[in-house]
């Protein structure tokens, strides 16, 4: 319930909120601004906000020196591949649990959630070993599978909560209308669940894009995505602020834009439907 407030009160709220919002956003803003400065301007004292000579040079240098596009492509393949694969596996599972629930459904859902809580570091070496055994160390395939597995519980859960909102009678109607299981899922369930599936894809793409344990530990030169690309700026290149900023901006820009579309789904996806 929005209650009527005085314009003065509203102005005050607005001022405080914007100040706090900008403060929280400032590190990102500062990174983006710095990426357009020269190295000298980037470390100028006092700092320069907008009164510098804007340049795109850093972006060119970053791409040229460290082949940004290759890392970007790896990120897209790994995040995209794991998300699409995960949704393909999760849609049938979520359908089963939402529309043909049994006494065990709840236990299975909770068990799936529990696998998400397995600390990665606890199983680091076995996974590392398995990757070596199958020649998959530093391969995109291994990361696609691993990130798919760590996000699969979230994907199943999100889809499950969306599917539960679809009335079962509509699916029964399609069965009466002569649809088999395949037609029921393809022509009736999936089109109705498109918004839910889209938000699931989006959120999990973001989570996979930003994942920084497996991507750092299981990749070297070939399969390294943007997380590893940025980590390579740790030193000493990190002291070239303008280039670091350009690299960072390029790494986060795609996801910031996608993220803004997914803020509502974020709550549902990360709390497993416990907060609505």
């Amino acid at each position: 319930m929005a209650r009527a407030v005085t314009p003065r009160r509203k102005a005050l709220n607005t001022a405080i909120s914007w100040a706090v919002g900008l403060l929280i956003f400032f590190p990102i803003l500062w990174t983006i601004l710095t990426s357009f400065k020269t190295e000298a301007e980037a470390i100028a004292d006092p700092p320069l906000f907008l009164n510098f000579s804007w340049t795109l040079e850093n972006y060119a240098v970053v791409q040229e020196r460290s082949d940004y596009m290759r890392f970007l492509w790896n990120s897209v393949i790994i995040a995209g591949g794991s998300t699409v694969l995960g949704v393909m596996i999760a849609v049938p599972a979520a359908w089963s649990m939402a529309f043909v629930p049994s006494r065990r459904t709840k236990d299975i859902l909770l068990w799936m959630l529990s696998t998400k809580m397995l600390p990665a570091v606890g199983v680091l070496y076995p996974i590392y070993l398995i990757c070596i055994e199958f020649g998959l160390l530093d391969s995109r395939a291994a990361l696609v599978v691993i990130l798919m597995l760590i996000n699969l519980p979230i994907i199943v859960w999100m889809l499950y909560t969306y599917f539960r909102e679809i009335p079962g009678e509509i699916l029964e109607a399609s069965r009466m209308d002569g649809a088999g299981l395949k037609e029921e899922i393809l022509y009736v369930l999936t089109p109705m669940a498109i918004p839910g599936i889209a938000s699931t894809l989006l959120l999990n793409f973001i989570l996979a894009w930003n994942e920084a344990f497996w991507t750092l530990n299981l990749t070297a030169a070939n399969a390294a995505p943007l997380t590893a690309f940025i980590a390579s700026y740790s030193s000493p290149e990190g002291l070239f602020y303008a280039k670091l900023s350009a690299a960072s901006t390029m790494a986060i820009a795609p996801i910031l834009i996608l993220g803004w579309f997914s803020q509502k789904q974020l709550v549902r996806g990360l709390t497993f439907g416990a907060v609505k």
Binding site: P167, E169, I170, E172, S174, V188
Partner: peptide, 8 residues
């Protein structure tokens, strides 16, 4: 069906 169950 009672809820009509049309495909929305």
């Amino acid at each position: 069906f009672q809820s009509y169950a049309l495909y929305p």
